[in-house]
Amino acid sequence: MYAIEFEADIRDGIVKIPAQYSRLENSHARIILMIAEPETSVVEQAAAPLDLTDCGVKTFKGQDAVEIQREMRDDW
């Protein structure tokens, strides 16, 4: 098995193989698609809300986190 690389547009679910690879006609191939995604800007990423409500971590629930830290530091 060997690899070739080329870029092509997909039209109606069909990828045209360039003429230089015509020897591949009627053969079996493993196809891997790599699609370029538009980059999101740092501003767009920062504007997206960070929702942690479904995390389920309840480490300090019902406790004073500052007091727990003070107790931990007393051990030093």
Score class of each variant (00 low, 15 high):
Y2G: 00
Y2K: 04
Y2Q: 02
A3Q: 10
A3D: 05
E5C: 03
F6L: 05
F6Q: 05
E7V: 07
E7N: 08
A8E: 04
A8C: 09
A8W: 09
D9S: 14
D9C: 12
D9M: 08
I10M: 13
I10F: 14
I10P: 02
I10G: 14
G13D: 01
G13R: 00
I14M: 12
I14G: 10
I14R: 14
I14K: 15
V15R: 09
V15H: 10
K16H: 10
K16T: 15
I17P: 02
I17C: 03
P18Q: 09
Q20S: 13
S22I: 00
S22Q: 06
R23V: 13
L24K: 01
L24P: 06
L24V: 07
L24C: 03
L24M: 09
E25P: 01
H28G: 15
A29R: 09
I31A: 14
I32W: 06
L33F: 15
M34K: 15
I35P: 08
E37A: 06
E37N: 10
E37G: 10
E37L: 12
E37P: 06
E39N: 07
E39D: 12
E39L: 11
S41E: 05
S41I: 06
S41R: 06
S41D: 02
S41P: 05
S41W: 08
V43G: 06
V43F: 15
V43W: 11
E44G: 03
E44L: 02
E44H: 12
E44W: 04
E44K: 08
Q45G: 02
Q45D: 03
A46P: 03
A46E: 09
A47G: 02
A47R: 03
A48S: 07
A48Y: 07
P49T: 01
P49R: 03
D51P: 01
L52I: 10
D54R: 02
D54F: 03
C55P: 01
C55N: 00
G56K: 06
V57R: 04
V57P: 10
V57Q: 08
K58M: 12
K58G: 11
K58T: 11
T59S: 15
G62L: 01
Q63L: 12
D64K: 04
D64I: 00
A65L: 04
A65G: 08
E67H: 12
I68P: 14
I68W: 08
Q69V: 01
Q69P: 10
R70T: 05
R70H: 08
R70E: 07
E71V: 12
M72I: 06
R73D: 07
D74P: 13
D74C: 09
D75T: 08
D75S: 13
D75Q: 07
D75P: 10
W76T: 04
